[in-house]
Nucleic acid binder design. Structure first.
Lengths: 243, 243
DNA sequence: GAGTGAGGGATTGTTCAACAATCCGTCAAT
DNA sequence: ATTGACGGATTGTTGAACAATCCCTCACTC
């Protein structure tokens, strides 16, 4: 029974469930379990079982499900229940399509703001600080063979690039996109190696940004995303073929 | 009592509330009321009153609130209730920032696809059909002085432009953005005239797209959005100053 | 009179139990 | 093999209940 398997583990997480909104905390627990791959795509989340395991009522649990449904981590099928989202190859392509628009668009908007001479918030170096931090975070993680950390650092890098748009809504959409992508990374044989491949590219993009070559950076991001998409689509199709 | 005022009107909508998910239908009713301006920003939505008016339980109503919260039409303040969202000037600026990225990005992506010779879905004329339809919809509505219809046609135009990215996620994000913007349009003295101003611009953008001048179209959209943003921000600030 | 703090009513947060509606697998009949 | 009815299990929705929280009022102090 792999079902009761992670239900037992859930029960242990009842401890850090003592503040703020109950539904929100339940969503946090489930989100972590999903993005870390413990809850495989396609898994059905029973209201009764999970409610009992976490010690919350069905109504509250339903609110948590709605929360995660909005983040596209769960899909809600009427009268059937909620399931961990199973992404199709088309979904992967679409995710990268949106990333191209968002990440390249953010850099482009930054370029236009700099060109028009109105840099609303601080100097350029301040804007690029999070990008630099993410690059170095990834490199130092790789130096220590901390591959999981490399993966999260890579996420931080792209989030930081999107944040160059200085738009709360872009930030939020990007956040959800990356969470969705985590559902896909787990189908790869070695997701860590996948991320490590792109460390030099991140560095190169950063250098282009610092040098002020924003259109160059934009192009680099585009080719980066094309390559990553192709690699991911291939791996994903292979995994789908296996089972 | 302006409170019981529209509560009575709600009661009349109980009729077309007889299929699919109850929470979803409740959300539909409320969404319509919000985007059409009957529920002003800042209005508090009492669980008890609305639940009684629509004849649904508090739990179901809360699910509907959650749904509309995801669409940013409602804000949920813990232990205080849900309110019709009140947008700040910064929100308006951010909405247009995202629109610039999305709409211009969609056109740009289309250009890149055409350049690389791989037009995934049909011919260019098919892609542009919805854009043309929206332009003509607006023009004929204006000819009949159907100003409300002009507004919705304008929405359709920009939705169609965003759809050039052929990305379900871009479509959805754009959908939510436009719904949010409706919250702002109602603060203007004459929202219809506002939309009518831009009818020729829509036509011009369409012509550029058909002519294959995609970078020209992109630039036209950008200036369009800049102008609309400025006009809206000004009107919004004035309305905020009044009360 | 202004500020402060303790009620107290009203509203939301959460749970629980119950029933209706729906789905899904089973099994019999054709 | 297909169809269709049956029954168990799960979700959808409701109503009531209680705790937690907010907000307004009002007395009190300085």
């Amino acid at each position: 029974m792999t079902t009761t398997d992670w239900l037992e583990e859930l029960r242990s997480e009842r401890s850090d469930l003592g503040r703020a909104s109950t539904a929100g905390r339940v969503a946090d627990v489930l989100r972590t379990r999903i993005t870390e791959g413990h809850l495989r795509p396609g898994t059905r989340l029973s209201e009764e079982d999970i409610g009992a395991a976490l010690g919350v009522s069905r109504n509250t649990l339903r609110e948590a499900f709605r929360l995660l449904g909005h983040e596209r981590l769960l899909v809600h099928e009427f009268n059937r229940g909620v399931f961990v989202r199973r992404l199709t190859v088309d979904d992967v392509r679409d995710l990268y399509q949106v990333r191209r628009i968002l990440e390249c668009g953010a850099v482009r908007r930054l370029a236009e703001r700099l060109a028009s001479g109105s840099s609303p918030v601080g100097r350029t170096s301040d804007l690029l600080a999070p990008v630099r931090a993410a690059v170095e975070e990834g490199e130092s993680a790789a130096a220590q063979d901390a591959w999981v950390a490399v993966g999260t650092a890579n996420m931080h890098f792209h989030q930081a690039v999107a944040d160059l748009a200085q738009s709360p809504r872009v930030t939020e959409v990007m956040d959800h996109l990356l969470a969705e992508l985590r559902l896909v990374f787990h189908v790869m044989d070695a997701p860590q190696a996948f991320h490590a491949t792109y460390l030099p590219e991140n560095r190169a993009i950063l250098e282009l940004l610092v040098a002020g070559d924003l259109s160059g950076a934009e192009a680099a991001i585009a080719t980066y995303l094309d390559a990553a998409e192709a690699q991911l689509v291939e791996a994903y199709a292979a995994a789908a073929a296996r089972g």
